[in-house]
Design a protein around this nucleic acid. Sequence first.
DNA 1: TTGAAAGCGATACCAG
DNA 2: CTGGTATCGCTTTCAA
Lengths: 373, 373
Amino acid sequence: MKRKVKLLDIAHELGVSTGTVHRALHNHPGVSPMTKSRVQQMAKTLGYRPNLAARYLSSRHNLRISVNTLQGTTSFWDEVRAGISEEARALVMENIEIEYRTYPRLGEGEEEAFEAALKSGVDGIITFPSRPQGLLSRMRRASRNSIPVVCVATDAPNTGRLAVVSIDTLASGALAADLMGSFLGGKGKVAVTLSSLVITEHAEKHKAFARTLHDLYPQMQLQETIEDHDIETEAYEKSTELFKKHPDLAGIYVTTEASIPVLNAARGAQMLDKITFITTDLFPALVPEIRSRAVAATIYQRPRTQGRMALRVLHEFLAEGECPSFQVTLAPHLVMRGNLDFFLQRQLLESGPQRAGAVRLRGASSDMVEYFG
Amino acid sequence: MKRKVKLLDIAHELGVSTGTVHRALHNHPGVSPMTKSRVQQMAKTLGYRPNLAARYLSSRHNLRISVNTLQGTTSFWDEVRAGISEEARALVMENIEIEYRTYPRLGEGEEEAFEAALKSGVDGIITFPSRPQGLLSRMRRASRNSIPVVCVATDAPNTGRLAVVSIDTLASGALAADLMGSFLGGKGKVAVTLSSLVITEHAEKHKAFARTLHDLYPQMQLQETIEDHDIETEAYEKSTELFKKHPDLAGIYVTTEASIPVLNAARGAQMLDKITFITTDLFPALVPEIRSRAVAATIYQRPRTQGRMALRVLHEFLAEGECPSFQVTLAPHLVMRGNLDFFLQRQLLESGPQRAGAVRLRGASSDMVEYFG
DNA sequence: TTGAAAGCGATACCAG
DNA sequence: CTGGTATCGCTTTCAA
């Protein structure tokens, strides 16, 4: 049994005080370079690991975290935020203060929100970088100032961000392709819609879809790709055009949340029941479409879990100064009509009673269910 | 901003000492019933929440946890144990000692293992109750002695167990049925194999499969169910018989890990390419079967996550005296040839470098991927 | 049955 | 630049 090494051990070993050791280990000002390096060396050789309990206890320096996301127009971001809140509450040391900053539309106001977070001096930021190019300089500045930034859903490369939490886009696209091929018996014309090929995530899904389709179902023909630029009417019109051009289209994979306009376009073109739809995410308007089998399957991106992971990674870094991984990639869930109700029930349960009173050992009579996305 | 209430607050309120308050709240001996109830009342009205950091700091008595599972003949339990270890290491307060007790076969030695764990005086037990009836009395005894027991993979009802972590069997069966129907175009004969209808989990999967098939694909015909009692030869022989009896069988859903004998039986009967297989779990021998498309899809039960959750629930109870939920139900993952590689890669990564050295902020050059099941 | 007090290990401040 | 020390909230003796 190895006794844990503490500050006093390493201080004693070097004949200095714990205060000095502390300052040296944290790069605080006021330590001679010599002692600092000696301390750090000794800490390493002794295998010093800080005692987090003691740390939390002594400095109850409330962590302030800014969460910058899209407004809750789509249920996706509501779920992400819910996951963040949950994790914050669950994180045993409840010294986390979360400030939500939202912006109304893609790329509109997100720079201001980021700026505001920086100005207010938060300890960390969780953000959805919808237009990375605009955020670039600000994120670099945050990184320079040692303010960790975690990206959710979309990555922002070369910004010095601490980590990114997202769905596995390659697995998503590949799964969609394999399902599409299976459903259609390995032949027919299919198409993909996405927001823009400039967005890495969408391009990856598309690439994985195309590649898997080609490898596993060589007889299937992938048609031109629709870019809707996150505009509903554009999605509708371009879909309508596509359906007109390919009256024999057999399937379509919607990689974004914007599946409703595409469904409506198919409905308008009287082609709804001839086309196999594979969509993305799960939100109220999609439920009846799945139930009526207009949508064959949807790929659920587990927004709640994304939120949880984002906060967890950020907190772990803030607490321990270390980051478990720079890229957290979630496996998507597949929702079809058969298992739809289980997902809906889960969403209900989780958003319903706020972690309905935890119960002590003896009082265990009625079970409650927690469904992990 | 509400100041946190601490022991001293409630002690002061009642004119007693913190020691008394502490003893009262923890049902320690040596407190008059009167003061005890007064303290507990006051704690409730003030909304006292213990400061865990202080708790861990003052008394870090190592938690000892026994993990009783099947030997690693199947990769499933190796993964479960890996998940448990991971979570133990990740749990910030690393005062957890885990003792693994394994038994070679279903129902063989598990009672002895449980007994040994109890005798050695562990603080909690995670177990796979393969033969609940034999464990019943022992689990009840554990419960009476306030030793929490968490079941993994399978529940043991009426045993006083603290919680159960398992896959959503209803969602699994329903998803399998919907996929089967989609793959087969809504018609044909299908069958189910399982270990025994006596086992709740298997019965539930079967029921969900049958029900979903009936509701969504009324033209499909569900044939008799194979019970293999966890014996490979039995699975092989009964499958062979089934294939002989139904030469037009179109699909089969294997709810257990025992899919290889069934596949071999189909191979022997020259029916491999005529039957759509939906299997359960993911293990080395299954990989080539998925790759060759002998298996259309497999339902992955996320053993690693099950292990993580089991330890988390148990630790939370041990640490806080509260249990977040008595039933943790995981949504299964769907693995097909298209996304197979992503799951294999994930298993490799996770079992490879032991949490390859966490890195500090500045050193973030090459990303590592962590793939959450 | 109860009170008083000594830690647990890291942090932060004040003297030197 | 460095040493000393009070502090965080809870647990756990030891006296009373």
